[in-house]
Each structure stands twice: as C-alpha cells, then as structure tokens.
Design a binder for these strands. Structure first.
Length: 423
RNA sequence: GGAGAGAUGGCAGAGUGGUCGAAUGCGGCGGUCUUGAAAACCGUUGGGUGUAACAGCCCCGGGGGUUCGAAUCCCUCUCUCUCCGCCA
C-alpha cells in the first residue's frame, strides 16, 4: 500500500508513475485526496469534542469531591449531549476510513524510474544472458516423456491421488528434488541467509500483509473451516515475521531463507503452459527475503539477483535475466527481475525465479518499521526472490542433459544426489 | 477435546471506576566520578495521530457494551499457562 503522505504531497507524480504500470489512477487519486481531507476535518472536530468531554469529566469528578451535586448533574447533561455528537462524528469517521482504505489497497506500487514502460512480456528488457544453448539430438524428448521413461516423476498417479498438477516424484526423481533443495539452502546459508522452516498455512492477516488478500484470493487454496490459507510461497510466512514490528537500524540487513512447498490454484491456465512440470498446483521452492533500510534496498536487490544467477550458472543452465516492464510487474513490486532458463527440448524459456524490491509497499501494509538515526520510526523496505523454484529447473535439467546413456546430473549436485546419472 | 487461571510499557511487575499513559525494579540512553572500565549517584526513557512548534486526540491482547468518566465492570473473540484426555 502506498502511504497517504505520498499521495497527498505528490498526486500528479503518483498518477504519472502508475501510467508505467498501465494503471490509470487519476480518478482514484482525486477521490482519495477528497476523502482524506474530509477525514482530517472530521477528525479535528471529533478530537475537539472529545477534548471537551474529557475536560468535563474531570470537572465532574471535582464537583463530586466538593459535594456539589447540582453542578455535577448539569455538567453530566452537557457531557451527554456532547457525546451524542461525538458518536455521529465517529461513525462518519469510520466510514471515511473504510472508503479511503478500500481505495488505497487497489493502488499498485509505484515502479522505479528505471522500469521500462510496456504492456506485455515482449516489452521486458533483457539485461543479462549466459550459457550455451545445448545441441540436442533430433529425437530429444520433452521432460514429461523423460520422466516417464526413467520412471522418476508420475503425473498420472498424482492426478489419481490428488488431482492434476500434484505430481509424485519417485526414486532418483525424489532424490533429485531433495538434492536441489539442500543445494539451494546451503548456497543461501553461504550467502548469509538464516534458514527458517515456516508454517505452510497462514491466517487472514498474514495473507493480507503480503498482498495476497484482498483480491488475489482466487490464487490460494483456502481451508475454510479454520480460515487459513495455504501459502503460495514462503515469502508470505517469511515476510509476515515482521508484521507489526519495529526494528532497529542495526538489525539490517535481515537476510532469511526457507524451503517450502508452494500451493497455487492457477485458475485459468491451460495448454502447453501446464504440460508436465511447467506449471503445478504444488511445487517446491527455496525463497530468500531481505528487510533493509531504504538507502540500501536497491543494492540488496542487485545482490539477490546475483545470488539467483550464480545458482543457475552452477547448474550449468543457459539463462537470461529480464527487467520486467511496468505492465508485466506484480501489483506490489517497484522493480522486478525475472530469470528464465532455456528448456531445450521444448525450446522454451521457463521462469525459474523472480526477484523483487517492494520498497515500503508491503511494509506500509503490515506496519513494518525501524527506528532511524533520528529516533523516528520509518517504513523499512522488503525484498524477496526465488532461489530457486524447482520444477522448471528440473524440466530444463532433464531436457538439456539428456544423452543416450541417461540424464547427466550437474557436478555441483552429485554430492547431494549420490549418483551422477539418471538411467 | 474437557476443567481452571491469565494477557499491563524492551523485560519483570503494581494498579479493581475519577489528574493512570500508568508506581517500582531491571534493561537502554545521557551525565557526574575514573587514565579507561566497573560500581555508585543524578537525569532521561512506549507507540500512533496531529502541529511550523506547542496543544489536542487515540492506544493497558482484538472487537463491542455500561458510565459524565474504564487498565479497572459486562459481553465476545484470539492467544498463553496449569491439570486431565488423546497422540507423532
């Protein structure tokens, strides 16, 4: 959520910035500003009435002490009158607060100056590419066929036991999953991230805090009986650790990581996008999160970008990094890099990581602050990124590393898998 | 799941209707003393909103109610602890 101060002080600038995200905010901003000034006016009146009530109460107490009952009764009467006015003002206030809030949560985060304008993924800007495209044989197989051939992933069994998009991993396939998770976590630890194991479900406040609610609830699985949501990423649990927290500047940078399964409904997806491992309802991911002060957050973003890139390099996969255009960025992000690996048999780029700086957008929502040098509490900045999401990495590894003898396991993973070939 | 107890400032812990935003202790910060440190002593020390700065207003787990007035009384929710049951 943007801060109301930003909107108050610079409405035109906010509108301009949001155009980069193809969001026409002019009407909403006007309305917010109007409601906000009404709110402030009402607040002032209400405060004055309350001040008078407080004063009268003290006077009444004094009258009782002096035994002046008649005076006390007349003051009581006045106080009651005041109170009914206060009640009306208060009702008006809370209506305004709700209306303002409802509008505010609909405003996306402002993209940074460097974010390219654009509407579709075609407008994203490639900022880095690395690695050789593998030269595969003519009869190279897509990963879902390789998975069946070597009996390492069973999609049909998942469909039977749970539903489409919930695969079983089996034998060397299961071990490969475990190896990747451990490899990613070890690398994160080496980069200074503290490992967490978090709950896999969150309450409504948390889902709201990172922005999944109020309007992205269609993407999450909900446990209605207990009003819990399955996490779509451990970003939700990791970031909500800091909900309603006031940190000290010396706590920065906070760097934390977690492996978790992620649950996504992915309503509306279809076709080749959901084939095999390309898009699942449950998948594994190692997430990295940083909380830091505003001055350092872009530096932190670059550091996280390099971390994700180094993982892909170590796995020997060809990849490219895209700076997302305004239209392709998420609601909450101010700057996002996407990482795509090339999955050679499908001949497709697959997104395996997304690293974002949310600046104070999430922090404002969840009241995450820190005390700066002046002793003022100000909003911290939050960032997160995948490091990395497993299924598409597995897809690319299977496809790119296939040989007549079997699938070759990258050097760095062998100490974790205990084997160097899937055959 | 059943029975009971509780939730107060960074922590501990007073406060059961009227200058209580809250005693006291610890911790933190500043100072005196010291070559330096410790100890001792003195001072200071919650959050939010608002203002040019004051003032004012709100906050004693969350929400609602009673009252002129609520940390204190009532209702409700959440959480914690103790005992019993069940259980990886």
């Amino acid at each position: 959520m943007l801060s109301i101060q930003t909107i108050r002080e610079n409405p035109q600038w906010v509108i301009e910035r949001l155009k980069v995200k193809n969001f026409d905010a002019s009407e909403m901003i006007d309305l917010v500003i109007d409601l906000d000034s009404q709110k402030r006016e009402t607040q002032k009146m209400l405060d004055d009435h309350l001040a008078e009530s407080n004063r009268l109460s003290k006077e009444i107490a004094l009258c009782f002490k002096e035994g002046n009952k008649a005076e006390a009764d007349s003051l009581k009467f006045r106080s009651q009158e005041l109170k009914s006015v206060s009640k009306a003002l208060e009702a008006g206030m809370s209506k305004l607060v709700v209306r303002i809030h409802d509008l505010m949560v609909q405003l996306p985060n402002l993209p940074q100056e460097g974010v390219p304008a654009g509407r579709t993924p075609d407008d994203n800007e490639e900022v880095e590419s690395h690695g050789q495209m593998p030269a595969l044989a003519q009869d190279a197989l897509p990963h879902w066929e390789l998975a069946a051939k070597y009996d390492i992933i069973d999609f049909e069994l998942g469909s039977k036991v749970t539903g489409a998009g919930f695969p079983f991993y089996k034998g060397k396939g299961a071990k490969l999953q475990r190896a990747l998770i451990t490899f990613f976590l070890d690398q994160a630890a080496e980069a200074g991230y503290t490992e967490y194991q978090t709950p896999l479900a969150v309450n409504e406040d948390s889902a709201y805090g990172t922005g999944q609610l109020p309007d992205k609830d269609g993407q999450m699985y909900c446990i209605t009986d207990d009003q819990l949501w399955l996490i779509p990423t451990s970003e939700v649990t990791l970031t909500n650790i800091f909900r309603d927290v006031i940190l000290r500047e010396s706590d920065f940078p906070i760097k934390i990581t977690a492996y978790s399964p992620c649950f996504r409904r992915e309503a509306g997806s279809y076709g080749k996008d959901v084939r095999g491992l390309n898009r699942l309802h449950q998948f594994d991911k190692v997430e990295i999160v940083q909380v830091t002060n505003p001055e350092r957050s872009n530096q932190a973003l670059e550091e996280m970008r390099e971390h994700a890139a180094s993982l892909i390099r170590k796995l020997n996969l060809p990849y490219r990094v895209l700076k997302l255009c305004g239209g392709d960025m998420s609601f909450a992000s101010a700057m996002t890099y996407d990482f795509e690996v090339f999955s050679a048999a499908q001949k497709r780029w697959l997104e395996v990581s997304s690293v974002s700086n949310f600046e104070s957008f999430q922090a404002n929502r969840m009241k995450l602050r820190y005390k700066n040098a002046d002793g003022k509490s100000v909003q911290a900045h939050t960032l997160n990124g995948s490091a990395l999401a497993l299924p598409r990495i597995v897809a690319a590894l299977l496809e790119n590393n296939q040989t007549p003898q079997g699938i070759i396991i990258p050097e760095v993973l062998r100490r974790y898998t205990g084997f160097d070939l899937i055959d």
